[in-house]
């Protein structure tokens, strides 16, 4: 009900969804990996996507910034429909931040260079200004003292926070997270989740693929459960965890909780 209220509020405020995925299908060769996906994300909404490994979670969010191409249906991001048009794709990517499971920092650049690269080359920002911006976001993720180091010299948790800051430097409208904590040692998970929680509190629109159910409960407006390439169930977190409707959801929750 919480969700509906927000959505209604948003609708009455005349706001448009930032992401609309309509009847979307995708195949890898003959393998039908995504089947009739429909997702609508309003500004400032936080969505958690979960489901068994191989169910297509990564593929869905990778379609949103066109790291993967969908074959049927529509994906509209921030008013731009994704098609083969390269200019559109680059525009969408500049508005959508993405955080990967394995951080994917650029190992040959220092932390501050990692962060200022996008603003300098995509936003055409002067170098000095971009570096100030980078320092600002390093403060936000609480590691300004690592600015001059290389990614290989800092811990996994720090690398993931740098990766988040790198995306934030592009001032994205939407942030996508693909299992951001599952490659981390347990003691580092919290520092990354804390950063994500404060980001959520600031009002960032987020889609997060994660099995961190604590995070889902605190932050999510909606939880989407996927299995075999389909959205099986979608609900606000309390209902989703306490009263799962679908058998497959119940099975999944019993396995991870």
């Amino acid at each position: 009900m919480n969700t509906e209220q927000i959505q209604e509020n948003n609708d009455t405020a005349g706001e448009k969804p930032v992401i609309e995925i309509i009847n979307m299908h995708k195949w890898f060769g003959d393998f039908h990996v995504l089947k009739d996906i429909n997702i609508r994300v309003m500004p400032q909404e936080k969505i958690v996507v979960c489901g068994p490994s191989g169910s297509g979670k990564s593929t869905v969010i990778r379609c949103i910034n066109r790291l993967e191409e969908h074959q049927r249906g529509k994906i509209i991001v921030n008013g731009t429909e994704l098609s083969g048009d390269l200019k559109n794709i680059e525009k969408v990517r500049a508005e959508v931040g993405m955080v990967f499971q394995h951080f994917n920092l650029f190992p040959h650049l220092t932390i501050v260079e990692n962060l200022s690269l996008g603003p300098i080359w995509v936003r055409k920002m002067p170098k000095k200004e971009a570096e100030d911006l980078a320092m600002h976001y390093l403060e936000i993720v609480r590691i300004p003292e690592q600015a001059k180091k290389y990614p290989g010299q800092i811990s996994g948790g720090q690398q993931q926070r740098v990766a988040i800051a790198r995306s934030l430097c592009m001032k994205p409208k939407i942030m996508l997270f693909d299992e951001p904590t599952s490659a981390l040692d347990p003691e580092m998970i919290k520092e990354v989740l804390d950063v994500m929680i404060s980001l959520a509190e600031e009002g960032m629109t987020m889609i997060v693929v994660t099995h961190e159910m604590g995070f889902a409960k605190t932050v999510a407006d909606r939880v989407i459960f996927m299995d075999y390439g389909e959205i099986v169930e979608e609900n606000e977190p309390n209902e989703f965890f306490d009263n799962p409707q679908h058998e497959r959801t119940q099975l999944f929750l019993s396995q991870i909780l």
Binding site: N65, L67, L86, E90, K91, R93, A94, V96, G97, M98, F100, H102, N104, L105, F106, P107, H108, L117, G118, W121, V122, A163, R166, S167, M170
Partner: peptide
């Protein structure tokens, strides 16, 4: 592959991606 994806998801175009990220490595 993650290096290509990270570069692309920042919105770098092909030449920027190659020149700044992929070729130096």
């Amino acid at each position: 592959q993650g290096q290509y994806e990270a570069a692309e998801s920042l919105g770098l175009n092909y030449f920027q991606k190659m020149r700044l990220i992929i070729l130096p490595q």
